[in-house]
Amino acid sequence: MEGTHTEHLVHRIATIRDRIETGMDRREFLRTLVTGGYALGVAGALGVDDFLAADDGEVPIVTAHVRADPDDPWSLEERTRYVPAEWYAAVTKALELNELLARTAFTGYLGSAVVPGSYDSGTATVSVGISSDPTSLRESLDGLLDGISLDIETIGEIEDIEQGPQDIEPRVVGSLTGNDVPSGVACETADSIATLGPVMYDPSSESEFFVTAEHAFDGGADTNGDHLSLPIEESDSIELGPVSHAHPAEDVAAITPEGRVQPSNAIDTPSPSRVRGQLTRLGLADLIARDEQLEKVGAVTGHTTGRIQGIDAVTCFTDNFCRHGQIRWGGEMDLTDGDSGSVSYYADPIGDEEDVLIAGFNNARTWWPGQSYVWGVGAYRLTEMYGYHF
Rank of each mutant, 00 (worst) to 15 (best):
T195G: 04
G184V: 09
R171F: 12
R171S: 14
R81D: 03
Q163S: 12
L33I: 06
D191Q: 12
I161F: 04
S131Y: 10
C187G: 10
E153K: 15
G117I: 06
I61M: 02
D55W: 04
V275N: 07
E139D: 15
T125K: 11
P198Q: 06
G156H: 13
G129R: 02
T92K: 09
E58M: 06
I148H: 08
A113T: 15
V66E: 10
I168L: 14
R307M: 12
S121E: 06
G122W: 01
I288P: 04
V66P: 03
A364G: 11
Q309I: 06
R12F: 05
P134D: 06
Q309D: 15
V377H: 09
R365M: 00
E157P: 00
V297A: 12
E157A: 13
G283I: 02
P73Q: 05
T80F: 00
L284H: 00
T383M: 00
R323G: 13
I267N: 00
M1C: 05
C316H: 10
E354G: 08
G259Q: 11
L110D: 09
V275K: 08
Q163N: 11
S207M: 04
T223A: 13
D72C: 12
G351L: 01
D286E: 12
I16P: 11
E214K: 09
E384L: 13
A313Y: 04
D133Q: 08
V297W: 01
F209H: 08
M385H: 13
Q293C: 04
V34Y: 14
E28K: 14
E159V: 10
P270H: 02
L382F: 09
L137H: 10
Q262M: 13
I161L: 14
H5S: 13
L279I: 04
G36F: 11
L357C: 03
Q278D: 10
T212Y: 04
I358E: 02
A124W: 14
L335G: 04
E139K: 13
L294F: 13
I161N: 09
D151M: 05
I358R: 03
V181E: 03
H11K: 14
H5T: 11
I152C: 11
A190G: 13
I158L: 06
F29Q: 00
D151N: 05
P116Q: 11
W329L: 03
R138E: 15
Y373I: 09
N320Y: 07
P349A: 00
S121M: 02
R171C: 03
Q278V: 01
G277S: 07
S149C: 01
G330M: 09
L145T: 15
G37T: 09
D151Q: 09
V275A: 00
I158M: 05
P60D: 00
Y380T: 02
T22M: 08
P231S: 06
R276D: 07
R81T: 01
Y201A: 04
V243I: 14
T177P: 06
R171W: 07
R323F: 03
S136K: 14
G184D: 14
A249I: 02
G178Y: 07
D268M: 09
Q262D: 06
D146H: 14
V126K: 08
R171L: 06
A266C: 05
Q278W: 07
N179S: 12
L97K: 00
A54R: 01
V377Q: 08
L9F: 15
E2R: 15
S264H: 03
P270L: 07
R31H: 12
L76M: 07
Q293K: 12
T123G: 08
H245K: 12
A221P: 08
L33N: 06
D268A: 15
